[in-house]
């Protein structure tokens, strides 16, 4: 892992990887969404509103996945003092907050025709809203206490502590009564028909790749900012 601790080595991988992730992600999302919108059938119970699934589910996966990434990077930063871990955690925060917000908004829009309400204070929806607020708090804390483009130890600890919300989001529909349906896709299989499943997997993978590309772009920006800062300091010393 420390092989990538050298920013030059990291950049030699990140530079060619960024456009690959971005363009393949965009292709998958556009293909999956177009198929989902115009080719896939309407659902027997939900009707045409099922087409929201191709956007809502990927964002619902990426929001908590992003925070899991922040927590892992924070542990790596605190335990192994990996110089890129804090930069990666900070780079994940904005796309993570974005997809959490998209999940909440699209879920609310889907809730109106499906449940007859825009919002319900149940376990799943509330824990997802908490995740969004955690992201906002993390972004503010990371910006206020940044250390050479990375995040401070306080922000890293916040990233680890906030991860307690991730299993709560995951298990909320099992632990409490909820309007939200239980998980349809798990590691053991899926209860979704393949005509819905394939375009969903395409958009989920596509959004995941876009997420990765955005994280790489933000990490590259942070590394460049550190370089500029160091060079300016050296120039001021001369």
């Amino acid at each position: 892992m420390h092989v990538f601790a050298n920013p030059t080595k990291f950049l030699s991988i990140a530079r060619p990887l960024t456009p690959i992730l971005l363009w393949s992600g965009l292709l998958l999302v556009i293909g999956g969404a177009l198929y989902g919108l115009f080719v896939a059938p309407a659902d027997r119970l939900m009707g045409e509103t099922v087409r929201i699934i191709y956007v809502h589910v990927p964002s619902a996966w990426l929001g908590p996945a992003g925070w899991t990434g922040i927590a892992i990077c924070s542990i790596v930063q605190l335990v192994w003092r990996h110089p890129l871990a804090g930069i990666a955690a900070r780079a994940i925060a904005v796309p993570g907050a974005f997809f959490s917000a998209i999940c909440l908004i699209t879920g609310s829009i889907w809730g109106r025709p499906a449940w007859g309400t825009w919002w319900q204070w149940d376990g799943r929806l509330t824990s997802m809203l908490v995740l969004f607020f955690l992201y906002l708090g993390y972004i503010a804390l990371a910006q206020a206490s940044s250390e050479r483009g990375s995040v401070s130890r306080v922000a890293a600890i916040f990233g680890i502590v906030g991860a307690v919300n991730i299993p709560i989001i995951n298990r909320s529909v099992v632990w409490w009564n909820s309007l939200h349906q239980k998980a349809s896709i798990s590691l053991s299989g899926s209860t979704i028909d393949s005509s819905f499943l394939w375009p969903l997997l395409a958009t989920a993978l596509g959004f995941g790749l876009i997420f990765g590309a955005v994280v790489l772009m933000r990490m590259r920006a942070a590394i460049a900012e550190i370089k500029v800062e160091a060079r300016m300091r050296r120039m001021a010393d001369i």
């Binding site: 971005l22 999302v29 969404a33 919108l37 045409e48 509103t49 087409r51 929201i52 956007v55 809502h56 964002s59 904005v94 796309p95 974005f98 998209i102 908004i105 699209t106 829009i109 889907w110 109106r112 025709p113 959004f207 876009i210 590309a213 955005v214 772009m217 933000r218 590259r220 920006a221 460049a224």
Partner: peptide, 25 residues
């Protein structure tokens, strides 16, 4: 209208996220 509203939010939203990150980089 609900389906269209979702896609009207996600398309420019994602484009803005990518454009902002790209410009910053």
């Amino acid at each position: 209208p609900f389906v269209i509203a979702v896609y009207v939010i996600i398309v420019p939203g994602t484009a803005l996220l990518i454009a902002h990150s790209f410009y910053k980089m």
